[in-house]
């Protein structure tokens, strides 16, 4: 039992370290020895956990998607309006971009930019389903309660997540004049107004 827990902790620390390195230096420039070095472990031992760099990359995206999904899941279970939920989701996303920028950066700069790495094993929504499922549930509830207008999933999803991703991208590029939290209020209002019934 104890051994198993220890291994799980080690696994997570590899993921977090790799996440930082991939996000900061790019996927191709980061090597397995770089990651092992930073963790003070042998390259051979790291391969015991992840058999290739590609597989490690895929596990990271699953991990970030689940972390984000878990937070939105909490919002989904709250007894509040869709408008308030939108605010909370935007807040979660932007706070994460601020406190753990590597999580979002990874998604934007590694996952979306290196599709060949993810083609075999992370097709479509396979590795991001933890997050997408919660967004689906949010939409489903909001339409069922009559607050949001019924439409195609992707037209709503694109508006919501494209907007948030774009803002975080601008932040990463250093062009936003103000801290990202400044925008939470306006952006959630914009999203609500665009999607409401």
């Amino acid at each position: 039992m104890k051994m198993k827990e220890k291994k799980a902790l080690k696994r997570e620390s590899i993921i977090q370290t790799a996440l930082q390195l991939f996000s900061a230096n790019g996927f191709h420039k980061t090597t397995i020895p770089d990651i092992a070095a930073k963790l003070h472990m042998s390259v051979g031992n790291l391969y015991n956990y992840f058999s290739s760099k590609d597989i490690l990359a895929q596990e990271i995206i699953k991990y970030t998607s689940e972390v984000l999904g878990e937070k939105i899941r909490v919002v989904n279970t709250m007894d509040i309006s869709a408008k308030e939920k939108i605010y909370k989701i935007v807040e979660i996303y932007f706070r994460m971009a601020k406190d753990k920028p590597e999580m979002i950066e990874y998604f934007l700069r590694v996952y979306l930019s290196n599709r060949e790495v993810f083609n075999d094993g992370c097709e479509g929504m396979v590795c991001v389903s933890g997050f997408i499922t919660e967004i689906m549930i949010f939409f489903d509830d909001a339409v069922a309660s009559g607050e949001l207008r019924n439409q195609d999933f992707f037209s709503a999803f694109g508006l919501f997540m494209g907007y948030l991703g774009g803002m975080v991208f601008l932040k990463g590029e250093g062009v936003l004049p103000k801290g990202i939290e400044y925008y939470i209020d306006d952006i959630s209002r914009n999203i609500y107004n665009a999607l409401k019934n």
Binding site: M125, D140, V143
Partner: peptide, 28 residues
């Protein structure tokens, strides 16, 4: 449907389970 998601789930299937499976399966 609500935003493309079937409003009634298959008998006894939790929505979260159904949507997780859907997202994965639709990716292939």
């Amino acid at each position: 449907t609500n935003m493309g998601i079937p409003a009634t789930m298959p008998l006894g299937i939790p929505r979260r389970a159904y949507l997780t499976l859907t997202g994965v399966v639709k990716s292939f």
